[in-house]
Design a protein around this nucleic acid. Structure first.
Lengths: 184, 184
DNA sequence: ACACAATTTGAGTATACACTCCAAGTTGGA
DNA sequence: TCCAACTTGGAGTGTATACTCAAATTGTGT
């Protein structure tokens, strides 16, 4: 019944292989074969531990996002600035992962199940945190206004990040900070 | 030397098949087989007229974007509001095409050639037009400030559009107008 | 050392895709 | 009417993909 150590290690190797492949070459480089080769595992083992390739990718991306969370305990003490800086940091430290994040949301199965739903949930949580931070910074803001404003700021950050994926010379941090200043 | 009528008609049929497939089911539905079936053509004919599948898709998307251009002659008379409304209209009238547009930019070959470059060029042209319109609306704005502001507004529109692809219930026009009001 | 569950293997399945080639057919100008 | 340029049919190529399964092996508690 209990999991064996060896299985847990294999799982970790697969996650690490997936992470490094995504970071190096994005979705295109992250084939099942590549994952298995790098993790020194046959495909059967992979499917013993993961439901699908997408399953592994989603876990990696989520871990990656959480790694730059300014307030992992959700104590509700982060400021808008903290959140914006965390966002900038994510794109700065894990550019390929950021592209994967956006790509997965767009190309996930057209049915609303799966990746898309997950990303939406994550987005909504972020909007909530931005809105809360905005209200803490400006107590005259109504909850409704804070939400609209949070959607706008996050939208702008997403859009500027997309812009950056088109052209790596684009100064994302500068524009992101301008957005934060202008919108919140 | 001159092109034969029958070839021109075949080309038109292929374009139309590609357009309708993209509009109905996005990139996933737009396989070569699907295009050829719908256009009543074999793949040999397709490759007689187009270099690649991507070639056909790019032509379709470009035509689709130009169809909602508020100032096709580039007379330089459009206002920021015109441009924002044109953007909203594009997403309202051709939602799937909009998704294709973003997807193509992200998933195009990782080398900077090809689709990505094209999209960047198109984006830069739009930024310029937004910046010009902003300067016409506020003559105290320096060209540099206008450009940064234009990048922000376009980024916000792109991001909100992306947000909408995650969840069709999101009120894109409302948020887009809020962005325009807040940023320009 | 035994039983039994957890894990691994690796060949195999099924499928999908963009693209090629060239013989045969058609068009339209001279 | 001729014929070269153009267009078409459609089988075929090559490659890649995610995923399955039954049997073999290994780990763990007793």
């Amino acid at each position: 019944m209990a999991r064996y150590q060896v299985g847990i290690q294999t799982e970790a190797r697969i996650i690490e292989a997936t992470r490094s492949l995504l970071a190096e070459g994005g979705m295109e480089a992250c084939t099942l074969k590549a994952i298995c080769d790098r993790a020194k595992v046959r495909s059967g083992s992979f499917y013993n531990l993961f439901d699908s390739k997408e399953d592994a990718i989603i876990r990696v991306v989520r871990e990656s996002i959480e790694a730059v969370d300014p307030d992992p305990d959700h104590a509700g003490t982060d400021t808008v600035d903290d959140l914006v800086h965390a966002y900038i940091r994510f794109f700065h430290e894990e550019p390929t992962m950021a592209r994967v994040y956006v790509t997965a949301a767009l190309t996930g199965e057209s049915s609303a199940t799966g990746a898309r739903r997950r990303f939406l949930r994550h987005h909504l949580r972020r909007v909530e945190r931005f809105a809360d931070a905005m209200q803490r910074g400006d107590t005259t803001l109504t909850p409704e206004d804070a939400e609209v404003q949070a959607e706008l700021l996050l939208g702008a950050l997403d859009g500027l990040a997309f812009r950056w994926t088109l052209d790596q010379d684009f100064d994302f941090p500068k524009h992101a900070l301008f957005a934060a200043e202008r919108i919140s």
